[in-house]
């Protein structure tokens, strides 16, 4: 057991400050273990979200020494033990209390994405055939655990607060699930362009860097969606054809 120092954000939406805690730590501990120890021994009202403690549910997102990470998958041994570890809430969302932020906006964004619409079944028994190579593309996006770390790091949301105009990398990834789904027939280009604000993304790939699931968000989800939107709305040849033959073409 060695003692380590932690600086944890304590406070509400209106005000707060870092509070220091000294915690006895064992081998193999992760940041979330330290937070649990603080709760059990020193500050039982310290608010934090967590569920699975195995990197599968995406609840315990926070910023550790300023970097967006899952607390349950961040080992203390990755940090020097002579300096305090700082734990602060995600900055792209309003604080409710301590490490807990109000992420309800994300659920609103998701609800507005046009729903999955399968093609008619391939067989009279109501089933389809899909092949492994076809499902692998959307399966990558389905690894998303909704931790919202990509939303947190994205400068469009974090710095410019464009929540009303931009759905963020997490939900571009969600839209990509359906847009690349072999059975889906819905067209989400209009939604991505207008309400989703896909044009705001200038592909700095910060989202990809922080994704704990290793999803190649920018390369595999966002860029192909941008291409779809561009093809549909900004292709000069198609624009010319529309001009000549009218919108119905």
């Amino acid at each position: 057991m060695t003692a380590r120092m932690f600086q944890v954000y304590r406070g509400t939406r209106q005000q707060g400050a870092l509070q220091e805690f000294r915690v006895e730590c064992d081998e193999g501990m992760v940041v979330l273990d330290a937070v649990h120890r603080i709760q059990a021994q020193q500050a039982p009202d310290l608010a934090c979200r967590w569920n699975c403690k195995a990197g599968k549910c995406g609840s315990c997102s926070a910023e550790i020494n300023g970097r967006p990470r899952l607390m349950c998958m961040t080992r203390l041994s990755d940090y020097p033990d002579d300096r305090p570890v700082t734990i602060t809430p995600m900055r792209a969302f309003p604080v409710i209390k301590d490490l807990v932020t109000d992420v309800s906006w994300n659920y609103e964004v998701n609800r507005r994405i046009p729903a999955f619409q399968p093609r008619k079944p391939d067989f009279p028994d109501g089933t389809w055939r899909m092949y492994q190579h076809e499902v692998e593309r959307p399966q990558e996006f389905r690894k998303c655990i909704e931790c919202f770390l990509c939303q947190d790091v994205c400068h469009v949301l974090r710095t410019h607060h464009k929540h009303a105009e931009f759905m963020g990398p997490a939900f571009l990834t969600r839209a990509a699930v359906y847009e690349t789904h072999p059975l889906d027939t819905a067209d989400r280009s209009q939604h991505l362009k207008d309400e989703g604000g896909i044009g705001y993304c200038n592909i700095t790939k910060c989202c990809t860097e922080v994704c704990p699931e290793g999803i190649r968000i920018t390369d595999n989800a966002i860029i192909p969606l941008k291409e779809r939107v561009v093809d549909r709305f900004y292709d000069p040849l198609r624009g010319l054809l529309r001009l000549i033959f009218g919108k119905s073409r």
Binding site: P121, T127, R129, M130, Y131, Q132, Y178, H181
Partner: peptide, 18 residues
């Protein structure tokens, strides 16, 4: 299980696509 597929689930496939 088949109903989940109709709602968008992406299960791993057999070589013949089931």
């Amino acid at each position: 299980v088949r109903e989940l597929e109709a709602w968008g689930a992406l299960f791993d496939r057999t070589p013949d696509g089931r």
